[in-house]
């Protein structure tokens, strides 16, 4: 023989073994890598039916995040939200500032991510139409959600209208029961908020006092614990991105968004537009400004709320806004889409 011809290189035994080993390695490495990586559970966000939190649902509806990424839990009362936060059943909550301070007083290390909205008429005192619109409202059965913003509203109502203590017969009533209790006559009045406010007004209730008369005092915020803020930054950024995108749609009153909102809140179109006027949604810069400025914005509101909570002995000592408002955290969460 003049020549000898080995097997083609790509078919040699050594080559076959090498390729099979690589394939085998890939076959068990890939699933293993999948097993080693623990799937991240969805970020839970607890809300109630307050109209001011609707951007969250609009964002979900618009596909700005999915249920696998962020799960919205809608409770029937703020108390339930606070309980979920205390018990660790949710990572993020949408609460009013006073509710947030109450939770903080219970030992939770909370931080405000961004201010969601300011109530500018969205919270109201609704009376049956057979009652006088003006005081005195002696022994009027008043339903409020105790331990929540309704309590602060009542406190401020007394102050604003110079009402005497013990004027009302207070009936603790979760927000989810406001409408039924009012319509059934179980209460004469109720301190409630949108969308129950619009429902009750449509049912013949009359509005005696509203948060329009307490400008800047009732603020809703998106809060979480500092631990979650550190661990779930990507999810929080996604949540914030969805929030502000949906807020823009809401402000622009995009027809499909309004339609969806009306369906969800069981409002008519006119009721929806009227209800939206009672809520102010700060944009990104306004939100950061509300957090940033000491002595103004949320910081000032916190001071007022701490006065109230100290007076009602919910708080034993004043903690100040420093622990709750942390611009670094907020800016970090909002930085992904903050215009630079």
């Amino acid at each position: 023989m003049f020549f000898s011809y080995p097997l083609p290189g790509h078919l040699s035994r050594r080559s076959v073994l090498r390729h099979l080993a690589a394939a085998g390695g890939t076959a068990f490495t890939l699933p293993l890598a999948g097993c080693l990586e623990e799937p991240q559970p969805a970020l839970r966000v607890a809300t109630n039916q307050w109209l001011g939190y609707e951007p969250l649902y609009i964002a979900r509806e618009q596909g700005l995040f999915t249920a696998d990424q962020i799960t919205l839990i809608e409770f029937t009362s703020a108390s339930a939200i606070m309980r979920a936060m205390r018990n660790g059943n949710t990572e993020v909550a949408a609460l009013t500032l006073d509710e947030t301070l109450r939770l903080q007083a219970d030992g939770l290390d909370l931080v405000v991510l961004w201010p969601a909205d300011l109530s500018n008429g969205g919270d109201s005192l609704i009376l049956h139409a057979d009652h006088n619109l003006q005081p005195p409202w002696q022994h009027m059965r008043l339903g409020i959600e105790v331990g929540a913003v309704g309590h602060y509203f009542l406190y401020r109502l007394h102050q604003k209208l110079s009402l005497p203590r013990g004027l009302f017969d207070i009936l603790p009533l979760p927000a989810g029961e406001h409408e039924s209790a009012f319509l059934s006559g179980h209460v004469d009045a109720v301190i409630t908020f949108e969308p129950m406010r619009s429902h009750l007004l449509r049912a013949g209730g009359i509005e005696a006092f509203s948060s329009r008369q307490l400008p800047g005092e009732i603020a809703d915020v998106i809060v979480t614990t500092r631990h979650v803020a550190a661990q779930r930054l990507d999810d929080l950024r996604l949540l914030a991105q969805g929030w502000f995108a949906a807020r823009t749609m809401l402000i622009n009153q995009t027809p499909t968004v309004l339609e969806h909102l009306a369906d969800r809140q069981k409002l008519t179109g006119s009721e929806t537009r009227a209800a939206l006027k009672g809520i102010l949604w700060p944009d990104l810069h306004e939100a950061l400004d509300l957090i940033r400025n000491p002595g103004e914005g949320l910081a000032r509101t916190i001071e007022h709320l701490e006065d109230y909570l100290l007076e009602t002995r919910v708080l034993k000592t004043r903690r100040g806004h420093g622990s709750l408002l942390d611009l670094d955290v907020s800016a970090h969460v909002l930085s992904e889409f903050t215009p630079r």
């Binding site: 035994r13 073994l17 099979l20 080993a21 085998g24 390695g25 076959a27 068990f28 293993l32």
Partner: peptide, 20 residues
């Protein structure tokens, strides 16, 4: 050089044992 018919099953067994 180990035969292919033994080598590949051995690889499979090893590849199975490692994830196990």
């Amino acid at each position: 050089m180990i035969s292919l018919r033994f080598a590949l099953p051995l690889v499979v067994v090893i590849a199975t044992m490692i994830p196990l």
